[in-house]
Amino acid sequence: MKNVLGLLCLLVIVIALAIIPLFGLRALVQDLFMVLCLLVLALNWNMLAGFAGLVSVGQQLFVGVGAYVMFAAAILWGLDPLTGGLIGGLVAMVLAVPVAFFVFRLNGAYFAIGTWAVAEIARLSFSQWRALGGGTGTALPRGAARDMPGVQLIRDVLGVSPAAAVDMLTYWLALGLVVAMLVASWMFLRSRMGLGLQAVRDNPVAARSVGVDPVRLKALVFLLTAFATGICGALIFIQTGRISPDSAFSVIDWTAFVIFIVVIGGIGTLPGPIIGVLVFYGLQSLLSDYGTVYLIVLGVLGIVVMLFARRGLWGAFTQWTGFDLLPLEHTPPKSAETGDRGKT
């Protein structure tokens, strides 16, 4: 019963978020767009670090590749940015295969540094791509974003300016991506494979002894999160309209913030990143007048959470109240002695 209530709650929140653009608050829509994108990245990183035990510091690699391929598709091949974004996600996933061959040979800390080094190589290589502006970057061609499928429809129905229609479309796509990520993560984690993954995280030796192949599962998660991260990267830069190697492969924006969001909210829990992104957005808006102070607060908060509540705010909350919005546990089968067989 609690589950149904929780799901209903989530549904109401999603609908509320979906109708926000209809009230024409463009600045808010743009802010929330970034929040939703960070949430997508956070959900992906949480899958990697929280469930698959892959602590990557190089997810900006896939953000950047997704975004750059989208730009290449729009500028060099004349495709519309949405198709380009999809291709960007696919290319990010394909690229994840050789990257996985390299970084999966490394363990723990070596893995973290290895992924970071690969992302740096990509940043420096993409800044050699003269057709896309080299080190200084480039902008989407005029009108490319406005010609995306769906923009005209939004304009006709709502009668808004083209720029506002682009904002709305990217916002709804980001919201859709969040919902898709949440549903996919939940279903994956509740599946046989997800169960195996969590078993590997909790006790690798025991998991292997019952026939779970950790490397295969981890590689699968690595590829799938690369795909979603790539698409999200492309979407972010459709909305931004400008790209440069430093912004697309920024370790601060696309990995550091994301790590804080997940850690503060609760690593290894599904609602954790949602809580984390709310805290992040709140801090950013509250302290925006004080320059970099919010980063210091964010850093301190991350340290405090790691010291006193390893499972973040959401983990502390569930432990305290016993309520979980998106529980991953399976109901244990009732034991035979109590005579309750068949009721589950």
Partner: peptide, 11 residues
Amino acid sequence: PLLVTFGLSVV
């Protein structure tokens, strides 16, 4: 430790 030193780095 990874995350705490990371937080320290940002601070």
